[in-house]
Write a protein that binds this DNA or RNA. Sequence first.
DNA 1: CTGCCCATTGACAGCGCTGTCTAACCCGGC
DNA 2: GCCGGGTTAGACAGCGCTGTCAATGGGCAG
Lengths: 339, 339
Amino acid sequence: MTELPAGRPTVYDVARVAGVSIKTVSRVVNQSAGVSDKTRQLVLGVVEELGYVVNPAARSLVTGSSSTIGVIVDSIADPFFASLVSVVEVRALAAGFSTQVASTWRDPQRERDQLLRMTRENVSGLMLAPTMGDHSWFAATVGDVPAVLVDRGWPGSGLDMVGVNDRAGAKHAVEQLLKAGHTRIAFLGDDTELTTTEHRREGYLAAMDAAGVPVPEELDRGSLAMTDPGVGAVTELLELPDPPTALFSSNARASLGAVRALHMTGRTDVALISFGDFELADALQPGITVVDHDPALIAATAVERLLARIGGAQLVPAEILLPTPLVKRGSGEVPCNRS
Amino acid sequence: MTELPAGRPTVYDVARVAGVSIKTVSRVVNQSAGVSDKTRQLVLGVVEELGYVVNPAARSLVTGSSSTIGVIVDSIADPFFASLVSVVEVRALAAGFSTQVASTWRDPQRERDQLLRMTRENVSGLMLAPTMGDHSWFAATVGDVPAVLVDRGWPGSGLDMVGVNDRAGAKHAVEQLLKAGHTRIAFLGDDTELTTTEHRREGYLAAMDAAGVPVPEELDRGSLAMTDPGVGAVTELLELPDPPTALFSSNARASLGAVRALHMTGRTDVALISFGDFELADALQPGITVVDHDPALIAATAVERLLARIGGAQLVPAEILLPTPLVKRGSGEVPCNRS
DNA sequence: CTGCCCATTGACAGCGCTGTCTAACCCGGC
DNA sequence: GCCGGGTTAGACAGCGCTGTCAATGGGCAG
């Protein structure tokens, strides 16, 4: 019986037992050329016998790279990002990369800390949903690690950005509401700082403007308090002397609030279109019409791009905007209930 | 001007510029004792100036530990686990640990692979929602890395397990349905292999038995196909010659399917209680009564336990079962519509 | 003034691995 | 039989850091 080493076996243990040099073990484990079949089989046998696994820390120390992809998003608890991360994880694993996830909670300081942490862990690539803070430090912190932005970017980032055409998607949705006869259409935002919210608001305003419909200030709820996920704002809107007959919600979180407010007061006569799908949107009566903002598609596109860059592909930084089909389920087609 | 090194600065660079030894730099960076205030300030200044950050790979190589907590769950895309992971991440970060997340998709092979990967990355601790496969390999793979199981365990694991009292929670829910006058109460399961599902089924059967109500086979839908998240099963149930007047769904995924099936067919006269809360459960008409299976509470409890173990606390492995209050929202109190 | 002790600092090895460079080996052709 | 060329294997350094242990120096008791 071969004597087993005390702790976890190392290349030295394998080499000793197999009667070869550590370099040969390294070659076999890394599948590099220059090893005869006979030696390879011998070494693989010993590797199996001892249960040897490489120490990624040691490898990373030498190579300066860790076969890890870092993903930094607003919050893993957000269903949109949870879904995105999940797709990235599966694809990355298949490509031989493990995934590190971190949340920023939209805090620029946290974003920077997480990015710094990942950078010093020698991640092979980064996927980031950036905060709205200043990013002038980005290049210095991240260096030349391949990076892809998701959902949004910042001016002059010089990076790939995979997202959707917020403006067009929003415009299309509002046009649908106008087509159903609505003119008093309220806008529900999120954080006004978020460029995505801002672009969707632009789409809203553009559609209204093109239809010649004025937008009274009280219907433009650009920002919602983080503590109030929409319920309060919608309740307020409905209590106006001249309330809106339709709502365009710029994000799923606000939509959930809107649905709560509408359903709890039985006001299903108010039209609603949500930018971003959510669970049960199809089961409500009426079903909620949504602009489909699919995290899986964004993730799949972004991760391919990132893997290509990690693989050394020379790509011109691009802004990749995916389509956002309007999924009509009823709530966006509710006709205007006012003369 | 101090000349900056080419690549990322190392302890050598800092030591050279500060005119001290690398060991002193190491001491300052690690806040270990035995450095005078003057030296400390000097070194910290240089650290700042050069933008030095430790190389975790090198540190991990020496210390054999990586200040990382590994979290392995069914799927990060599952809202329950997404929420759980999110809480762990925040708490771990505050304690100086970064978090690695991985999904098993309930595949024992994947579970083992992920565990092996994390083990060789020298994680400081592990949190695992185990698959239902054999775990005889566990001790050999994981060694003495502190580990805490969440949501479920396996017999003789000898590990901490943080979950809920599935049997009692389910029994309580079914008693509520019985109290509302229902006798034809269907059970919606998930995977029959899952011990959580099985325990909840036991609670269901126990409540029925205690009330002297027989459970016809056709109402006991222990397992649902992964591809059918409940809609099909519930539709079938409602088309029975003698359909159930109430449903007890053992998990949120099945509940979503049940809600879809009920709302799309307008059958809100059927009572429903869900084991596990979900988004919009409160906004539906009627609101969905749930057994509150709170991921945040489980996560918080489990991570504290794990951090204590990592900190060297000597604890007797325990099964910690958290309470599952019944949140009455209406759907569980719908009276029986049959004579 | 001398010696001793403690506080502070440094020299050095080595964690496990891979890159570079050299050595050994086997083959066929002259 | 000897040499050249290609293939396979090994020796060795060093990635950046921390643990061990030794050295240095300043203050205070004797």
